[in-house]
Amino acid sequence: MDFRDVKNIEYMNQGDYACPGCGAGLSMRHALKVLGEKTIIVMPASCWSIIAGVFPTTALQVPLMHVPFATAAAVASGVKNAYKKKGQDDVNVVCWAGDGGTFDIGLQALSGAAERKEDIIYVCYDNEAYMNTGIQRSSATPPGAWTTTTPTGNPLIYEKKDMFNIVASHNPAYVATATIAYPDDFYLKFEKAKNAKGFRFIHILSACPPGWRIDSKDSVKAMRLAVESGMFVLMEKEQGKPIRITYKPERFIPVREYLLLQGRYRHLDKNTINEIQIRVNERLKDLDLS
């Protein structure tokens, strides 16, 4: 599938509450173009709880259910099982959760649903902190990043949780990383997820201009530099197959180019940036990418 072939059909209404340059709004818009109208969205507390609109308005043209923070994967399991029993097994039931609702408070329900091989698609749009409550650290926040609860930088002893492999260890039907800065790759992965049967997980990197302290015009650029620097690797794993890297830059750029674009990293000294570069290099080596 080529993203240029996607029909010019919108499942998001005009007018929503996303900030200018929000990666999460953009990602939803494009994800729905692939998923289509037979899609039900289950949404735990996140920025999207607001982006979706205030009663009586809504940003989505597909059925949407807001749910408490820790419950997305469990609620979606119930929705999907209900639809199966109704004889309508062709409906995509999609969790649309932030990193807090996935890496932290929703992880148990996510693991349960993945282990039970629930036939749902779980999408985590990862903006690397609790952005909706005003930029607090989550376990998806990279080491060094400023947030309001890590005012001198997220301690370097922390490592961002490896959600791809955490989910992959449940042996799901499909697991992938993606970002809308690479729309071809993004569309292809949603298409694969849509066509697979069983538990599917897509981890989306999603820029947050206010939280990352970037200009909204640099949102897509930031997501692109994350990939070009190797901070975020685009890959996938289909059940029974090895991990596949879906995009490899000709040459990785230094992480400092990605970091220094963003105000949340601007306090970092040379040594800290070097330390982050060393970790990225090690990870890329592990993935046979360097």
Binding site: P68, A70, T71, V75, G78, V79
Partner: peptide, 15 residues
Amino acid sequence: LSAISAAMGASQAGV
């Protein structure tokens, strides 16, 4: 927590 959440999802799906 997931037991009641799944029941809620099923109920919201109309069963």
